[in-house]
Amino acid sequence: MTRSLTIHFDPAQAEQFLLIHRVQNFGEDVFRELRVTQWGEIDIHEVDTATDCLVVRRIANSKVRRLKAWIEREMARQHLKGLVEIG
């Protein structure tokens, strides 16, 4: 069985166009990390059209907490605020 993570970015942290750009850049970083680690999948087409939310799918149960922690650390490193939900 696989799980998913939904990343909701706080829209109050930047004006809309700046936030969209930062969310898409962050999504590209997540995409690259997942290609290396094989912990899950994120659709690059969704990343390219993202505005304030990203979804990582097909995460093995054994990797979901590790990936969530990595995403939260990476968000903090890039000064992005938001919530990561396990689904």
Rank of each mutant, 00 (worst) to 15 (best):
M1F: 06
M1T: 13
T2H: 14
T2E: 14
R3V: 07
R3W: 13
R3F: 13
S4R: 00
S4A: 12
L5G: 04
T6I: 12
T6C: 10
T6S: 08
F9P: 01
F9A: 01
D10E: 08
P11I: 02
A12D: 13
Q13G: 07
A14S: 15
A14D: 14
A14I: 06
Q16E: 11
F17W: 13
L18Y: 03
I20C: 14
I20N: 11
I20F: 13
H21K: 15
H21C: 07
H21G: 11
R22I: 03
R22T: 05
R22M: 05
V23Y: 00
Q24E: 07
Q24P: 07
F26M: 08
F26Y: 05
G27K: 00
G27R: 00
G27E: 02
E28Y: 04
D29A: 08
V30W: 07
V30P: 04
R32F: 06
R32K: 15
E33T: 12
E33C: 11
L34C: 08
V36C: 12
V36A: 11
T37R: 12
W39V: 02
G40E: 06
G40L: 07
E41T: 10
E41R: 11
I42N: 00
I42W: 07
D43C: 02
I44L: 14
I44G: 15
I44A: 15
H45L: 10
H45Y: 06
H45V: 03
H45A: 08
E46G: 07
V47M: 07
V47K: 04
V47C: 09
D48C: 10
D48P: 00
D48R: 15
D48M: 14
D48Y: 14
T49L: 06
T49D: 00
T51F: 04
T51N: 06
C53V: 12
L54F: 03
V55C: 09
V55Q: 03
V55S: 04
V55L: 04
V56G: 06
R57F: 07
R58C: 02
R58S: 11
A60W: 00
A60R: 10
A60T: 04
N61I: 05
S62I: 09
K63Y: 08
K63D: 10
K63W: 05
V64K: 14
R65Q: 14
R66H: 14
L67S: 13
L67F: 09
K68M: 12
K68N: 14
K68F: 08
A69C: 11
A69P: 09
I71E: 03
E72D: 12
E72S: 08
E72N: 11
R73V: 04
E74Y: 04
E74T: 07
M75L: 09
A76E: 15
A76L: 08
A76Y: 10
R77S: 04
R77A: 10
Q78Y: 12
H79N: 13
L80S: 04
L80N: 02
K81D: 05
K81E: 01
G82S: 01
G82C: 03
L83A: 06
L83G: 05
V84H: 00
I86F: 06
I86S: 13
